[in-house]
Simulated scan of single mutants.
Amino acid sequence: MTRLRAGVLGAGAFGRIHARKYAEDTRVHFVGVYDPDDERADQLADTHGAESFGALDALLKEIDVLTIASPPSFHAANARAALLAGKHVLVEKPLATDAALGAELVAIAAANKCVLACGHQERLVFDAMGLFSAPERPTRIESVREGPWTGRSADVSVTLDLMVHDLDLALKLMGRSADRVSATAHAEHGKAADQIVATLGFGDAEAVFTSSRIAADRKRTMRAVYPSGEIRIDFLARSFENTTSFPLNAAFAETRIGADPLGANVSIFIDAVLGVAPRPVVNGEEALAVLKLALDVDRASGLPSHS
């Protein structure tokens, strides 16, 4: 079997993980990486016996699939270049930082028959739990996703950096778009929000999201209230409490997908490119819906989405 040729744009923390996942997959030949920081790109390439490219165009000529793990402000331009070159693309979240640019990516991918996927891999955690098969819709969701300042993804708001995960999960759980959005936010390191609390309405249901990248400690939790009970999830402890009758998998963290959702997301992206899976975990259209909602949250807060 001819192996897919894969590349990674961005040699930071997430780029290194994606490179390792490609290098470990027997269906893939990891060709190399491009990063404006030559030293960082060289180190990552050397780790996997791959090539460090001096420009994105040079990398695109040698690959079939590309992970984009650059700062979020560059996601759209880099994905556009790759899709126009006929490459299948997995973009780390968010899909873009502008709704029109995100919509353009979806259109180009469809026109060129390319797979366009996004890195909202928290969906796979819920899938491993069995939560998406619940026979009820939540009446209320409360989520907290916060941690100390790292400087990573500081070019965009904490909404586009962290809250996008919970927005995606809420859209999937609620099964509909939000019809009411309000938010309050605080900026400390730039113009965009570093801390934000958003309240969203989904018909008769409500969701409250808290995200911060200037908190004292890391916290990743969600409480989902259903007519028959509630589920409290601790993403860091990889555990949950369940008072509903839903037959959820308490050992989800021990499953292949639950143990490594990012790796599973990359694997399913490859499946979709090879035609083994009908679609990636989160496709371009779904990622665009999350992006639009995140931008609505920032607008409601009165702060910009870009620093």
Rank of each mutant, 00 (worst) to 15 (best):
M1F: 07
L9C: 10
G12T: 05
G15V: 00
R16C: 11
A19C: 03
E24M: 09
E24N: 15
D25P: 05
F30Q: 09
V33S: 05
P36M: 10
D42E: 14
A45K: 13
T47N: 09
G49Y: 14
A55D: 05
A58Y: 14
I63H: 09
P71Y: 11
S73A: 14
A82D: 05
A85S: 07
K87E: 00
P94M: 04
L95H: 10
G102D: 00
A103P: 01
A107R: 15
A107Y: 10
M129K: 12
M129Q: 04
M129E: 06
P138E: 00
P138H: 07
G151T: 06
M163W: 07
H165Q: 06
D168E: 11
G175L: 05
A178F: 01
A178T: 05
S182P: 06
H186C: 12
A187H: 09
E188R: 15
D194C: 12
V208S: 04
T210V: 13
I214P: 00
I214C: 10
D217H: 12
R218V: 00
A224F: 02
I233F: 08
S239A: 15
T243H: 11
T244P: 04
N249D: 13
N249C: 05
T255C: 03
G263W: 09
I270F: 13
A272L: 08
P280D: 01
E286N: 05
A300H: 03
